[in-house]
Nucleic acid binder design. Structure first.
Lengths: 127, 127
DNA sequence: CGACTACATTCCGGCTACGGAATACAGATC
DNA sequence: GATCTGTATTCCGTAGCCGGAATGTAGTCG
């Protein structure tokens, strides 16, 4: 992956916010979506963009798709460096902190069904 | 300057190469142009892009315009961090190393006139 | 099977970036 | 003033991104 392509991935605010959350660990689309408060299409397309360029991986789990950064050992040096840099840079920014806060407030179960009727048969996603 | 805007400045290869050279110190347009081997319009427009966003400064010296990164003390933390990151990341890349090599071979005087007839009245730029 | 949920894709429109040719401009020299 | 040199800007065309509405798809549940 060329350096420019990394920056091209980073040059959109929505993608920055997504990557920032994924730095904390794997997440399903619905968690990302509600944390960012953006429409589903938008989230999905940007995740697709990142996935097409290898910056994130996707894995299906039942109804849900879990997105994650590749494990640290497998990251190209430039990717690792820039993710670390991103981590540092967002420290002061309100938007990013709000995303994290919103994520923390999310239930562990993904769907309402998972909470209401679930616990026996309907389980939420495991992220 | 917002973080995304920094990445937007970095997401073009020509601009990356320009910034990389400027990390070594101030340079006039003609030096940058011949180091990169790209047409003048292209160089000038990308420099304008960077200047408009405050990532570089420009200063006229006679016929020449010297571009430079703002002094380290004045750089926003995110800018400083990303420039450092860039510096690290280009280490392995051929293109960037070639740019530096080409720059080293340049004469100190900018224009042919400066070399041929000059030395008394016509001086090249001071970069 | 049908219905529902989570997610992806397609099909637009608008906007911006990028590149090159031509032109304009500023300062120096004559 | 005329001219040259270094640089910037304008005027194109093209291409890609971004967003949203609608539609499609995969998997689950009953």
């Amino acid at each position: 992956m060329k350096l420019v392509e990394i920056y091209q991935c980073l040059c959109d605010e929505t993608r920055l916010r997504l990557l920032h959350l994924l730095l904390r660990g794997p997440l399903c689309v619905c968690h990302l979506q509600s944390a960012l408060g953006e429409p589903q299409v938008k989230i999905s397309k940007h995740l697709g963009y990142l996935k097409a360029r290898g910056l994130v991986t996707a894995q299906r789990q039942g109804n849900w798709v879990i997105y994650a950064l590749p494990p640290e050992a497998e990251r190209a040096p430039e990717v690792a460096a820039n993710l670390a840099c991103l981590q540092d840079c967002v420290a002061g920014s309100v938007v990013f902190k709000r995303d994290l806060a919103k994520l923390a407030k999310e239930d562990l179960e993904c769907s309402p069904l998972g909470r209401v009727r679930g616990a026996i048969k309907k389980r939420g996603c495991s992220c």
